[in-house]
Simulated assay, not measured.
Amino acid sequence: MGTSIGMNILMLEDEPLILMDLEFAAEDLGCQALCASSVRDAMAILDGPDPVDAAVLDVTLKGGETCVPVARALQQRGIPYLLHSGDLNRHDETVRGLQAELVAKPASASRVIARAMSYANAGGGMAAQA
């Protein structure tokens, strides 16, 4: 708490270059990036000491994982999140079931982080607008 850094944003992304872009964009916007590349890593961050204000979740992860367990944990805790995916056809049902805003890849990392920040500032209005 008493730091000058704004909000903590959980980033679940298994592509190192994309994760790095998101991390730098978050830092440029005054946020702390809490980076994870697997469901296990993301859940450890959620259970860790740092509060999470918002999250950016890649839908499809390595090893056949999806972001669904993390999305459900965020929903239970009332933490807003958005989905960041380039694999829309394969996981269309997954994305619809989560009812979160989707920012399709490729997208500007700063735009993705700004959207996540706006959700956190709005108190979590993350349901998709149909």
Results as ranks from 00 to 15, higher is better:
residue 13 E to F: 11
residue 47 D to K: 07
residue 120 A to S: 03
residue 88 L to C: 07
residue 96 R to L: 14
residue 130 A to S: 14
residue 60 T to K: 15
residue 130 A to L: 13
residue 35 C to H: 01
residue 91 H to S: 09
residue 41 D to C: 03
residue 99 Q to G: 15
residue 59 V to H: 09
residue 130 A to T: 08
residue 107 A to D: 04
residue 39 V to A: 04
residue 60 T to Q: 15
residue 4 S to R: 13
residue 83 L to T: 09
residue 20 M to G: 00
residue 41 D to L: 06
residue 71 A to K: 03
residue 56 V to A: 07
residue 43 M to T: 08
residue 106 P to E: 08
residue 100 A to I: 03
residue 71 A to Y: 02
residue 8 N to V: 06
residue 71 A to N: 09
residue 89 N to W: 00
residue 9 I to C: 04
residue 27 E to K: 04
residue 49 P to R: 14
residue 96 R to D: 03
residue 35 C to W: 09
residue 30 G to V: 05
residue 75 Q to K: 14
residue 10 L to R: 06
residue 11 M to G: 10
residue 119 Y to R: 11
residue 27 E to L: 04
residue 68 V to N: 07
residue 63 G to I: 05
residue 61 L to M: 10
residue 62 K to E: 15
residue 71 A to W: 03
residue 44 A to C: 01
residue 58 D to H: 00
residue 118 S to G: 03
residue 4 S to W: 14
residue 82 L to C: 12
residue 6 G to I: 11
residue 18 I to H: 08
residue 71 A to D: 04
residue 61 L to E: 10
residue 81 Y to S: 02
residue 97 G to E: 06
residue 51 P to M: 01
residue 59 V to K: 09
residue 78 G to C: 07
residue 44 A to F: 02
residue 25 A to S: 08
residue 127 A to M: 13
residue 85 S to W: 11
residue 103 V to D: 01
residue 110 S to R: 09
residue 49 P to Y: 06
residue 129 Q to H: 14
residue 25 A to C: 06
residue 103 V to T: 09
residue 50 D to M: 13
residue 81 Y to P: 07
residue 77 R to H: 00
residue 56 V to S: 10
residue 120 A to I: 06
residue 62 K to S: 15
